[in-house]
Design a protein around this nucleic acid. Structure first.
Lengths: 211, 211
DNA sequence: ACGCATTAATTCACTTTGCGCATTTTTTCA
DNA sequence: TGAAAAAATGCGCAAAGTGAATTAATGCGT
């Protein structure tokens, strides 16, 4: 990754973290874009080059998407051939791939945002919207795998079950990370993994694969 | 209902319809709150007494919620005792109850908004957020019925299946109503009913009720 | 029918958002 | 090293959204 892209990513993260930090400190109503930009040492205008709204910076990107490769594997009935198993692997792949440090950061962020959303319920719809978008993406992938139309009901059912498992896991996750993060990131990811397994076990018990 | 409340409802509807109409005509980016307020013959400030943002007026209220009575019946394992059957009745109750004229209006609105959302995809997350809120409500109701915690996975699974059925039905619904609405409102509601039945049939085939 | 209390609507002034545009700075690559 | 490409900035402005004071409309008791 070139210097350019790294700097962009840095700026973006700086803005995002400043946004979240200030929102946690003062409540998001009492944070202006100017404040955020100042805290990240960029101009207000630059802020809007990265985010189209204040809330977007505070709420963040939503669940990480599987990349094209993972999607291709899933669509091709891989890696195991079982729908639920493959779905689980598909959904978890962005976490399985990324390195521990990065992951620690992200889980810490998730945790901070969770507290924020609890304190400011008007943020919740935004978060949900991000999951909904993910659900659409998963639904399309499932449809392709099954050779059905994305508007058919079965892909939608499967996708919504998968997303439900995901939401469940993330909601249950109690991050014990300090602000620094990476220390027990591995613990967190394995805890998340366990919750994920548990959720999919429940799915398997209530789901009857074929008609 | 007193004159006061009726007038409030009228104003609210006027604002909402003006918002949707103008957004359809010009695209929502090219509609200002001043325009909407002017079209509804109220001041801008009054608009913000009814809606906290422009998008809220355009997107609308989301799926109608079952009332407390329907919820009580559902929680008490009524009316049939079968989870899926009762869920279907529970979710459909707001439509089954309301009178034909009102219903016609609302379905016409749904249709107009659907076209709007197709043309302006950035509105979709908002709509989805409304469904997500509904899903939470349903999840709590299911949890109460089953005597489980709302944070447990089973209620969430059931709720997400129900909402998926709902979304599926509404997405598929092809409203053939003219702008006036109420003419074939009954057709529409029965078509929606049929789609709903179809979706729940699919749920029943993929859902295994108990562990 | 009258006046009084409530609640809704309006006006005004103000802060903040969000973005188009021209300019400057930084990064890339030949 | 020196353009070319891309990012950051400063400026200006239309629109969003809000608090506070004022005016109008409605409900209610007598």
């Amino acid at each position: 990754m070139g210097l350019r892209e790294r700097k962009k990513a840095t700026t973006r993260r700086a803005l995002q973290r400043a946004a979240v930090r200030l929102a946690v400190e003062r409540g998001s109503e009492h944070v202006t874009v100017d404040d955020i930009a100042a805290a990240a040492d960029v101009s207000k205008r630059t802020f809007f080059n990265y985010f189209s709204s204040k809330e977007e910076a505070i709420v963040g990107d939503g669940p990480p998407r599987p990349d094209d490769e993972a999607r291709a594997v899933f669509v091709a009935h891989g890696p195991t051939g079982d729908l639920l198993d493959d779905l689980k692997i598909f959904l978890f792949s962005p976490l399985a791939d990324s390195d521990a440090e990065d992951l620690g950061q992200r889980l810490a962020d998730v945790h901070e945002r969770k507290r924020l959303a609890q304190r400011e319920p008007h943020l919740v719809p935004r978060v949900m919207a991000a999951f909904a978008d993910m659900e659409r993406y998963v639904g399309e992938s499932v449809a392709e795998r099954l050779g059905e139309d994305p508007d058919d009901i079965r892909p939608q059912i499967v996708a919504s079950l998968g997303i439900t498992a995901m939401r469940f896991s993330m909601r249950r996750l109690q991050t014990h990370a300090g602000a620094d993060g990476s220390a027990d990131a591995r613990d967190d990811v394995s805890e998340l993994r366990a919750l994920f397994d548990q959720a999919f076990d429940a799915l398997r018990r209530t789901f009857r694969p074929a008609a």
